[in-house]
């Protein structure tokens, strides 16, 4: 009897050890490219090109300095920030009321159209606007890039917020209406404060998608309004690939997102899986 118990205890230990071993292996696979990115960003280019120095090298900050000094990364960094931030704010301004109205008044056609935007390939939005912009010489203005990024951020926000507003019970609005509040007043003073967590989720995701956007900026930005993803992409078009610089630039562009993810993990997961769990 005692033997048996000790045996099952050992079995349990083995099972737990195997489980954590599995977790570590999965984590290693998921995180390795990030680790490699950071490691390479601190290597001299000669060390990256030398296979014998995969792990033993003298760390250097030169790549980061060079990215800002030689390649003028401040400009795309600020451009990216301004464009993503302003377009997210605009998308919230337009999207929150729209999502509320769609969710409450059951405008199904409308939510169908929002889903359509997800389905249509982004390049079919690009061709006509590119043609029009070149004709009107509008390519590369901030205003248009910001409006363009709304194509990404506005559906994201509406998509996340419709189920969120639907999940808030109607009783609260009805009570407010009985007390004589207008529809506008109910929305501003009751629904908005109640939906702060949802708004935060939607806002973060819209910002991330806009920050990451490559396709639109690839065609529509000028040298003045280059965003970060384009600036990184342009690195590889130089004849000698400057890997150290590319990796430093990649760290710079992903760092804000990694930091946001650490602090707001729960929000991002609910946002990304929105609509999925409800079935």
């Amino acid at each position: 009897m005692l033997d048996n118990m000790a045996g099952s205890k050992r079995q349990k230990m083995i099972r737990i050890t195997l489980f954590y071993l599995f977790v570590v292996v999965v984590l290693a696979v998921v995180l390795f490219p990030f680790f490699w990115m950071i490691l390479a960003s601190f290597k001299k280019n000669a060390d990256i090109l030398n296979v014998d120095k995969l792990f033993s090298f003298v760390p250097t900050f030169k790549n980061y300095v060079s990215v800002f000094v030689d390649y003028d990364f401040f400009k795309p960094l600020t451009n990216s920030f301004i464009i993503s931030f302003v377009s997210t704010m605009l998308a919230l301004l337009l999207g929150l009321p729209a999502a509320y109205a769609i969710g409450r008044s059951r405008m199904h056609l409308f939510s169908g159209i929002i889903l359509m935007i997800r389905i249509v390939p982004a390049i079919s939005f690009l061709v006509p606007w590119y043609l029009l912009f070149t004709k009107l010489k509008l390519t590369g203005t901030y205003t248009w890039l910001i409006i363009y990024h709304l194509i990404v951020s506005l559906p994201t926000i509406i998509w996340i917020m419709i189920p969120y507003f639907e999940s808030i019970p109607r009783d609260l609005e009805e009570a407010a209406k009985i007390d004589g509040a207008s529809n506008m007043g109910t929305f501003c003073r009751i629904m908005m404060p109640l939906s702060t967590p949802g708004t935060l989720t939607a806002g973060i995701l819209a910002f991330i998608f806009s920050w990451n956007n490559f396709t639109f900026a690839l065609i529509l930005c000028s040298s003045r309004t280059t965003t970060l993803p384009i600036a990184i992409y342009q690195f590889i078009s130089y004849s000698n690939v400057y890997w150290g610089g590319i990796m430093a630039a990649s760290v710079i562009i992903t760092m804000p997102i990694i930091i946001i993810s650490f602090f707001l993990q729960r929000h991002i997961i609910t946002g990304l899986t929105a609509g999925a769990v409800k079935g």
Binding site: V30, P229, I232, S261, L272
Partner: peptide, 22 residues
């Protein structure tokens, strides 16, 4: 672990592409 799982899909695709290229 959940946070780590988030990173590949929220990180900028171009940066991801560059690391994998390396």
């Amino acid at each position: 672990v959940k946070t780590a799982f988030l990173l590949p899909m929220v990180a900028t695709p171009v940066a991801i592409g560059m690391v994998w290229k390396l």
